[in-house]
Nucleic acid binder design. Structure first.
Lengths: 149, 149
DNA sequence: CATTAATATATGTATATACATTAAATACAT
DNA sequence: ATGTATTTAATGTATATACATATATTAATG
């Protein structure tokens, strides 16, 4: 559906402005779809993101700042997300031996289990969320990579 | 820059999953850029969005639910955003005559003035944020419109 | 070695999102 | 016309973002 119709705005200043609005709106569409999947597991999209980063390093630990670097949103607060996940026993936190400023975070068996349950669901959902064929998805990835300069 | 390098993730499950992550990451990139522009005017991106919607109807008023419909993020809370803008005298709020459940919101001269100041800055910024030529922007808009099904 | 600078994490505050609930007004059905 | 359902806006709560600041630790410098 055309973005003009979705947000009931007749015209845009120019196609660049339209593209920005289109990207913001599409993001909202995706986040809404994803949140529905995470909801039953008591996870937010960003908490899921942290778990995936930790699984990527497992069984090695990951520091808070390294999680921050890999997060989709650079400005979000990894420290507090880790705290939430710890309260749910999905991660464990240990002072780093080599540098006592740092904190080593590891995903727990509980966390791995939850991710495993989610894997198939996410994969199917991702395909369904994007109403594009393979060529179009590749094109989209290329455009987004170029867009950020 | 390739999304793989930006978030230091070597591979994705498939190109669909990669596209989702790419869209979320790009959104964060845009919001960060835009926030910097709005900051000196003491506006958040969503507050700016509400003001633009109101200007689109000016001098006619717009109800809270109509603002909500037109917002990029359907789930955000128009009522509280309007309240913030009212505190800054950028909008005024009046009970609707025909339906006393509704509230008519109108942008004030102050609000229009701020938007006018921002117009050129936003236009230039939008072009600079997107490192794409005109053809690519059109392609991107088409893909995003199709993507949402 | 002492002092200063830099780094890692945590925390405080304001704003926004997501969702549920409430309260008032209106529409609708019998 | 009365009772029920729906709609509109506001509000409460939990979470997340954005940014500033604090605290502890390590690195760097004189």
């Amino acid at each position: 559906m055309r973005i003009e119709d979705e947000i009931k705005q007749k015209t845009f200043k120019d196609i660049y402005n339209k593209a920005i609005v289109n990207l913001l709106y599409t993001n909202s569409y995706i986040v809404t779809c994803q949140s529905k999947i995470f909801k039953p597991y008591d996870l937010s999209p960003e908490q899921y993101n942290v778990l995936r980063i930790l699984r990527g390093q497992h069984p090695d630990p990951t520091t808070v700042s390294s999680i921050q670097d890999r997060m989709l949103n650079k400005m979000s607060n990894a420290s507090r997300l880790v705290e939430k996940l710890k309260q749910k026993d999905m991660v464990c936190r240990k002072e780093c031996i080599h540098d006592r400023r740092q904190v080593d975070i590891t995903i727990t068996q509980d966390g791995l289990q939850i991710l495993k349950q989610l894997d198939e669901e996410i994969k199917t959902s991702n395909r369904n969320i994007l109403n594009l064929d393979e060529n179009e998805v590749i094109q989209l990835n290329d455009l987004l990579d170029k867009l950020r300069g």
